[in-house]
């Protein structure tokens, strides 16, 4: 493992949501992997990615029918690993979502914040 990996900031941008389930798991998996390497990891949900953060939505998404693991499980695990989750205010408006509709533990931010986060990150992974 690269010794300089520790403490790096990784920003994961997720633009895919519940309409494309196969594009939802991997970004969270990478986020958890980076967190397990003692990196600081942020996931920014924007555009369609916002849809997976609506209460009751992620529970319905399951890639493996034989598994108990849903997209909601993945989101909870990601938080447990210390990954910070952010959502785009403007995208929430697009989906008619209010703060009450949002899963717990997700912070709402505006567009300027994403620019700031991008500038502050060592690497940005865009999905």
């Amino acid at each position: 493992m690269r010794e300089d990996a520790e403490g790096k900031k990784v920003l994961v941008i997720q633009t895919h949501g519940i309409d494309t389930p196969r594009r939802t798991y991997s970004p969270l998996f990478y986020a958890m992997a980076a967190a397990s390497m003692d990196m600081e990891v942020l996931v920014w949900f924007t555009m369609d990615g916002t849809s997976q953060l609506k209460k009751g939505a992620a529970e319905k998404i399951k890639l493996d029918p034989e598994s108990d693991v849903t997209l909601r499980t993945m989101l909870e695990r990601t938080k447990e690993e210390g990954v910070k989750l952010y959502v785009c205010q403007q995208s929430m408006t697009l989906f008619g979502m209010t703060e009450e509709d949002l899963l717990d533990g997700v912070e709402i931010m505006g567009a300027a914040t994403i620019i700031d986060l991008t500038l502050g990150a060592d690497v940005v992974m865009y999905f």
Binding site: E3, A35, S36, M37, D38, D64, E81
Partner: peptide
Amino acid sequence: KGMRQKGQSLATIESGKWVGP
């Protein structure tokens, strides 16, 4: 090899459905 504090990651362990320290 090197110093690690209690609670820091020693290794990343991956399966098909899980990844964690």
